[in-house]
């Protein structure tokens, strides 16, 4: 394994998830597609935290629980975004982010 450590391997996988998520976030035009991309990025973050906790002398338990918090935040965020998407689709009839231009109270 020419000089690449286990930690680096996992970090590169999570970096790949971050890149895919950013790519999808900019490329997607519907809100659901953007939501899926955000989930990819959050997964990358969780993988990175657990890898850092498990493979270095840092506290493994704290690393694992930090990832658990990331998952909880992701669940809360998805519940809110689901409600927002439903409101947007009721009001505009579509969820294409390009055409959501009016802001009314």
């Amino acid at each position: 394994m020419n000089g690449i450590t286990h930690l680096e391997m996992y970090q590169f996988v999570s970096l790949m998830l971050l890149g895919l998520g950013l790519f999808g976030l900019v490329r997607r035009r519907s809100l659901v597609g953007m939501l899926i991309s955000v989930e990819l990025m959050l997964n990358g973050a969780g993988l990175s935290i657990v890898a850092s906790g498990q493979l270095t002398p840092a506290s493994a338990a704290m690393g694992q629980l930090a990832t658990l918090f990331v998952m909880g935040l992701a669940a809360a965020e998805v519940a809110l975004i689901l409600a927002i998407i439903i409101v947007v689709s009721r009001r505009f009839g579509h969820i294409e982010s390009n055409n959501l231009r009016t802001m009314r109270g």
Binding site: V32, E39, N43, A74, A75, L82, I86, S89
Partner: peptide, 23 residues
Amino acid sequence: MQILIYVGAVSILILFAIMLTRA
């Protein structure tokens, strides 16, 4: 937890988002 929370809850919520927007 990953399977329970993400696969079990988050992806179902996203599926609901897809269904409810009547795309």
